[in-house]
Amino acid sequence: MPSPLMIGRLVVTNMTDAAFLFAVASSLRRMMIGFTGVVIIGIGTGLLLGRFRFLDDVLGTLAIALHAMPGAAWVPLAIVLFGLNESAVIFTVLLGAAGIVMVNTSSGVKEVPPLVLRAAKTMGARGATLFWHVIVPAAIPRIVDGLRLAWAFGWRALMAGELMVGSIQGMGRLLNDVAKQRQMPQLLAFMVIIATISVAIDTLIFKRVEKMVKSKWGTA
């Protein structure tokens, strides 16, 4: 077993290695593209499902099924659809993380506190105005919750996609390569870095936003 000190050293060496950083950047870029899609499609669909009862009846179950599917399970389909390339990985991130955002957004919309709705209605808000000025802002804490979870799900889907697609530049391929060469210390160092990036982004961005929103909306 390699010592923690040794792994620590390897982590530092990697972080200053241009080739390694390039691989990390490629993975992060894919994640960003996928996550942007998650934000747009997840929130967009979630708002539609929350707003229109008939859509929710038809597609609501589909969103829940999408959310129930483990991200890795999308990879084979992604490969069949797109081939062994970057698009397949992005597709995996998108489908692995969009479901939770849809489900959270639509329940946020449906579960606006009755008191807030009553207050808005007595002040003359109705229809689309009520939706955009009251219901959507009231749902923001739930949407933020969904995005935070989606980040974690998306990150897992990204790794699954990169590991299985294998041939493209990125952290997944690095893991595959060192595993084939049985380089245990380097493998562990990569894994530490992968976990750290995920935790860092969660703490620096998502946790902060969530905390801010919760204290402001009084849902903490």
């Binding site: 008191l115 807030v116 009553r118 207050a119 808005a120 002040m123 003359g124 808000a125 105005t129 000025h133 009251v134 802002p137 009231a138 923001i140 402001k216 909306w217 009084g218």
Partner: peptide, 23 residues
């Protein structure tokens, strides 16, 4: 209302303006 039914995402000023804005 009994509990504050103010909109948490709006400032005090914006809350008071809300009904006028709707009108």
């Amino acid at each position: 209302f009994q509990e504050s039914a103010l909109f948490p995402w709006l400032t005090v000023q914006q809350n008071v303006e809300f009904g006028l804005k709707m009108a």
